[in-house]
């Protein structure tokens, strides 16, 4: 539950996501999808309840410690791409690896750019790239640190249909390749249907089963990205 001007945004949510699983959070605008994503990713804190990411209790960590968790385990893809305008495509992709002091950042970034088909655009600045290209750079950036969990907020929300399909294909392909857990928030039902799980939110609550029967609580051990949000 988040308290902001006495407004309850989320309540009674208990959700566990297993490692490598792809999960889509769907729901109408204002249903609490984005708030849930923010809490799951450790960008925000619940006013009550517990959140675990790779067994780390995010709800007990401060901003700096959560940053550290994100640096080690999390990747992001945003609807508005959010590339750093002063950095080239290559430098944008390198950024998370550099923050993690990875000496091999440049080579990794070049490989990833090649995988998203942007090798020739490596030295271009974001303003010189189209929307689809920017999102491909963002995807490459998200995967460079080989995150355990990738959070995507409306990754195709700003793209046309053809580009959306291409981006979605790329996202799922890399997800499979790197065995990453994918949590995405989307309005796009086609995209949502490509995920193994779909949960729907309404008025800040989950309206269908949070944990599918094929994943038991016991399976959410160290190998599981265990995210639990309870009141």
């Amino acid at each position: 539950m988040l308290e902001d001007k006495q407004l309850t945004l989320l309540q009674d949510i208990s959700l566990t996501v297993a490692k490598g699983q792809t999960i889509a959070i769907v729901g109408s605008s204002g249903s609490g999808k984005t708030t849930l994503l923010s809490i799951l990713a450790g960008l925000d804190l619940p006013s009550q309840g517990e959140v675990y990411l790779k067994n780390k209790p995010l709800h007990k960590l401060n901003e700096e410690q959560r940053s550290q968790v994100r640096a080690e385990h999390v990747g992001f893809i945003f609807q508005q791409f959010l590339l750093i305008s002063s950095l080239t495509a290559l430098e944008n992709v390198m950024l998370p690896a550099e923050l993690a002091n990875d000496d091999n950042a440049k080579q990794l970034a070049l490989d990833l750019l090649a995988q998203v088909g942007l090798s020739e655009r490596a030295n271009h600045f974001p303003a010189q790239l189209s929307g689809g290209e920017q999102q491909r750079v963002a995807i490459a950036r998200a995967f460079i640190s080989k995150p355990d969990v990738l959070f995507a907020d409306e990754p195709t929300g700003n793209l046309d249909k053809k580009t959306s399909t291409y981006i979605a294909d790329l996202l799922f392909e890399l997800n499979t390749k790197y065995d990453t857990t994918l949590v995405l928030v989307t309005h796009d039902l086609t995209l949502a249907q490509r995920c193994q799980r779909r949960i729907e939110m309404q008025g800040g609550q989950l309206v269908n089963g949070p944990i599918p029967s094929d994943i038991s609580k016991e399976q959410c051990g160290t190998e599981t990205t265990h995210i639990e949000v309870t009141e």
């Binding site: 550290q68 305008s85 923050l99 993690a100």
Partner: peptide
């Protein structure tokens, strides 16, 4: 602001 947000989301520390 948004650049700082991105840095932080990527796990950059406050001191960085």
């Amino acid at each position: 602001q948004s650049s700082v947000g991105v840095y932080k989301a990527m796990g950059a520390s406050l001191s960085h």
